[in-house]
Design a binder for these strands. Sequence first.
DNA 1: GCAACCAATCTTGTCAACAATTCTTGCTAC
DNA 2: GTAGCAAGAATTGTTGACAAGATTGGTTGC
Lengths: 219, 219
Amino acid sequence: MSSHVSAAPRGTAEVTSAIREAIFSGVFVAGQRLVEADLCEQFNASRGAVRSALLELAGDGLVERIAHRGARVRSVTLDEAIEIYEVRMVLEALCAAKAAERIDASGELELREIGERMSVAVDVGDVMGYRELNQRLHALVRELSGQGTASSVLERLRAQSVRQQFQLATMPGRPQVSLPEHLAIIDAICARDPEAADQAMRVHLSSVMDAMRELGRPS
Amino acid sequence: MSSHVSAAPRGTAEVTSAIREAIFSGVFVAGQRLVEADLCEQFNASRGAVRSALLELAGDGLVERIAHRGARVRSVTLDEAIEIYEVRMVLEALCAAKAAERIDASGELELREIGERMSVAVDVGDVMGYRELNQRLHALVRELSGQGTASSVLERLRAQSVRQQFQLATMPGRPQVSLPEHLAIIDAICARDPEAADQAMRVHLSSVMDAMRELGRPS
DNA sequence: GCAACCAATCTTGTCAACAATTCTTGCTAC
DNA sequence: GTAGCAAGAATTGTTGACAAGATTGGTTGC
């Protein structure tokens, strides 16, 4: 019974990120109960810190809290994941269009570089590297859009569906499908064409949603 | 110095809604500092309750919290308000399209009734009644869409820009402009035409954004 | 006269004990 | 054998005191 994951963190901030990381990395599975006292022992923190952390994570939609009944890791069903992706689709499309309007030379350079590295990653078969680049691409588009509100909402939604994303990335043959979609997004933004960027992003996320449905309902 | 707004609330939940209400109703103006001790006295609650409330409200984006420097009512600039409305536009358009796909006879009845009552309110010049119906219409569209994720995000965004909304509603001649837009949304959804519903909602919120720019920069 | 420094004060962050609530388990009555 | 009930255990919600950090005003040295 020596499951002391860590012995260092003490403050609220440390505990928050520790629990968040534990959820992302799969140490805490979906639906698992998060008892405050247990978390205190695991992370070597006081209850106040754990409590604040859970409150914040509940605000981020990562854990569910019911009054007098405790907190648990929020489990997103396939239907909810699709809902999340529908929202992400329209928001990321908005960001792509805005990015196409505002992009400058240095941003274009960054986009192109990610595109080339993605192509290489697919050629080599570097799944994890591609996954990393995928996240960086979407983050860069958000940043280039200058749309802070959309960015923060998207950041939260991404955290909620991080589990599905992971499953998807490891799906064999998936990178080969999504690479041209990603390149189309990059091309449209660099061409300063908001309409095309909007459309390319929608096509990409539609494709992701289709793959997710496939994965959730294996024939 | 007898500014005891209330003497009843004691628990976290009560304090949270009390502060939220105070922000909505303008008792706490934008940028105002929210000192925990003061709130304790005003709402007759303990610091723990106030603290949790501020944490939750920070998650909702209503107050800003800086470490060791306290919380203040988040003030949204005109630019931020426009950002928020850009996000609302694409999300409400998504909801309108979904609603058009899923609507049934009873939903159609509800929509039509709101439309008729809106027309009456404009005829009579009942500004506050129109404002109320406006909120009910948007809420109903969200509900009919069955898109829980988009709905919750929109709910949060609405709370953040409630101040701007109020200013807008009292703008003379505004209802005359927005009424036909609202009716167009209702028509499109009842006609089961997702594309038209999406478009009608975008037109409406674009018009709202234009009016907001006008209001923020009075010639 | 000005800048840097230091102390007093205010405010938030943390903690451990206490109270309220819910869940579990074992018993009893029908 | 099952439904209802009650006592105990487990868990969360709340409270007040204490510690840490930040701001402000004055003071000192140049």
